[in-house]
Design a protein around this nucleic acid. Sequence first.
RNA 1: GCCGUCUUAGCUCAGUGGUAGAGCACUCGCUUCACACGCGAUAGGUCACAAGUUCAAAUCUUGUAGACGGCACCA
Length: 884
Amino acid sequence: MELAKAYDPKSAEENHYKRWEESGFFRPEINQDPNAKKYSIVIPPPNVTGSLHMGHALQHTIMDVLTRWKRMQGYKTLWLPGTDHAGISVQRKVVEQLRKDENKSPLDIGREEFIQRAWRWKEQYGNTITEQMRREGASVDWTRHRFTMDESLSLAVRNVFCTLYDEGWIYRGLRIVNWCPKDKTVLSDLEVKEETKKDGKLTYLKYPVIGTDETVTVATTRPETMLGDTAVAVSPSDERYKHLVGKTIALPLTNREIPIVADEYVDAEFGTGAVKVTPAHDPNDYLIGQRHDLEQLLIMDDSGKMNAAAGEEFVGLDRFVARAKVVEMFEELGLLEKVDDYEITLPVCERCKTIVEPILSEQWFVKMDEMRDMALDLMRDEGVPHFSPQVPHEKVYTAWLENLKDWTISRQLWWGHQIPAWYDEDGNVFVGRTEAEAVEKSCGKTLKQDSDVLDTWFSSGLWAFSTFGWTAQGDAADFSDDLEDFLPTDVLVTGRDIIFLWVSRMIMLTKKFTGQKAFEDVVITGTVLGKDGKPMSKSRNNGVDPIEMFDKYGVDATRIYLASIATGADIKWNDTGVEMYRNFANKIWNATRFCLMNSEGIAVDHASLMADDMPLPDKWIVSRLNKTAMDVNKALDKYEFHTAVSLLYHFFWDDFCDWYIELKKDEINGGDAASTTRIITILEIAIRMLHPFMPYLTEDLWLKLPGISSELHNAAYSEAAATVMLTSFPPGDAAAIDERAEREMDAVIDVIKKVRNIRAEMNISTAIKFTVHIAADAGVQEVFRANEAQILKLAKAEALVIAAELDVPRASAKAVTNDARLAVPLEGLIDFDVERTRLNNQITKLTEEKTRLDGQLSNANFVDRAPAEKVTELRDRSMELEAN
RNA sequence: GCCGUCUUAGCUCAGUGGUAGAGCACUCGCUUCACACGCGAUAGGUCACAAGUUCAAAUCUUGUAGACGGCACCA
């Protein structure tokens, strides 16, 4: 068979995925071994509004490597795909579309119509990422694709909500929450990001104390909130203010009078020592308000504009306009003490960057204390989940859990899971799985459903088991076969940004509702940074599109490059890294091309590698192959993908291509059937090992190999059509590791390298052949004699003289290896002055090393305490240098 | 403020106590019949800095500097 001269990734990528998918190769059912162990991964569901970015590509690569590896090992394997309904993001897209196309607001069309539009939007645009995943070669079971708003997953959400409510883990309450005035919804703490503003102001306001001519100065970064002040607080131990506690302030710009209270929260050392208290607009003030039974005065509406409570002059003003106006009016009143520049960090909405307003609002919350304890116990008692890398994630995870606050789960959106709570006219709440159930609970009243939906992460939190069909219908848990087979999942692969948002919640909710672990292991990937070393982002415009990389270098090259990053480490994207693996793919292609050129009448035959009478290079490569296979498996077991990649790269390129093919070339070109069978067989095994990383290339090549048949398949997949996907992953055989062959081969390789080195150093043209003299122990001499032809060919030498001692003219180039001394008599074609300088430099270097070694060896401490083999090693090296 | 990670060859990165590694780039030589996305051979690092532990430190401890991340606070 003749292959093209270079590998073209496109054709391989186009030829195989569809067939794999349509043949059901990705489905666990393809495994027909009734005793097969199960292996499962659920995908972190990408957002339906998203498209593939490098972070996905990295995580998907790792998940696919694990899945393909385990599948080949004979596990009944499921990688379950899906998408997330992304409440706020989709809502915003649909609102935008509505405004642009029809100049309408959601209120114009109503909730029902809006939700229909959102579904339409999702159908139309929500599949971008799933199509891109096909391009990646992701071996997910598409027949099990889930969406967080699928019927069964929605049912799970309702059931979980009701159970948690019934057990008192979910409550509704008035709390200070993070409010985004643009999205007009509450946000959880995790959806709020801090942004540092250097141009912030700290405004000092003077409040007159009634019945005195004193004023109390308070400082604030949000002057407009003074309109909602209902007290001023000072430290109980602050002598400066002691006489004022209990007195009343005439709050400027309002006609309200507010008390001065003493509260431990206030730090006398900080600022002026007096704090304005706005219970409806600040979390700390809220707590002070609770302690002193203060009024909670809400002065803003849901869009961040001042409401009637703020007073006639302010109503309708945006909060920032009101801020300026308050400062201005204080100045006019002579009550503005000063305005300082102040660096401040502001909470902003993670998605739209609007400054978040803390606001008093009635919302639904999940009480986290008991769930937190469950998760902490799991970690303490069983070490689950085991993070890779363990440091620092385990510690960060644990620390976060220990300080966990209640979780705000209601969102003022229409797109999502509407909260299964209904109210009667008096505002009494009835929670039920259906409206009928709620009505029944209310004894037949007319009810209205809560208009809010649940946080998207609430449904994502059920992902580890809701995807397997868990709905907990009624009171009896509904255990589907999938749930039984695949929960707990084996590993979760994700980025560190959602450890809290998603991973931790999934652990807690899975434990609570199924009694199971969501997953044993968590692999936390690093961040792929832009070429500037900063995280990729639209605003920085430093993003690298995976699809472009696929087009430029091929999917396989991109995948294996991503897999070559140390687990958990950040990496700056660099094209040359991918290019390296593009070249590697081409190398594999061409090595196969060479093997196939001579393969007529040859078939892959694993028995061919078992023969006892193989020549040294064959014994050696079989040993290297098995050692590599064992080490690759070990590395993958530990989630050390980069180690596995490095092992495969060096085995294939250095051992197989640079040495084995070169050593065997003459035999193979000469039509030696036994040699050709062996090289094809070794190639076949190597291709299988590479498959999880480079699925397209390996499938393309494997199908071209002569003599592949269903007999080579993993027994679990007896009825599968031919594909490398369903072969067995080489486990490596310790018995096939031949240390002696490796030592002998190293001796041969060293000699060849030294001769090449001499040729290059002496500037001797490859056209000139010369005789190489080798001196070695008798056993080693035999090795050189047995491999004389190979040495002559690769060293481009004419003849070998092998003996116990070197017998050469003085004008010879000499070299030493671990096992031999060698010399090339020089016929005087070199410049002796140049050569002398070079040698002098080398002597200096070696002398330095010897001095250091001898120093170590003469140190009694070292000789006594260091392991014996280490001492011997150094002694040998010292003697070797002496010999030079 | 607290916790944590990183700092190794020009570039991008491996390397968790025992002679400093890879790929790319650079230099030299090869149209060698699988591959120039290639082959062969060099050159290039007081492993951020300082102190300590050890016979032995890139590797362990402590401190310093720089880069970054998480959490808290922010009147």
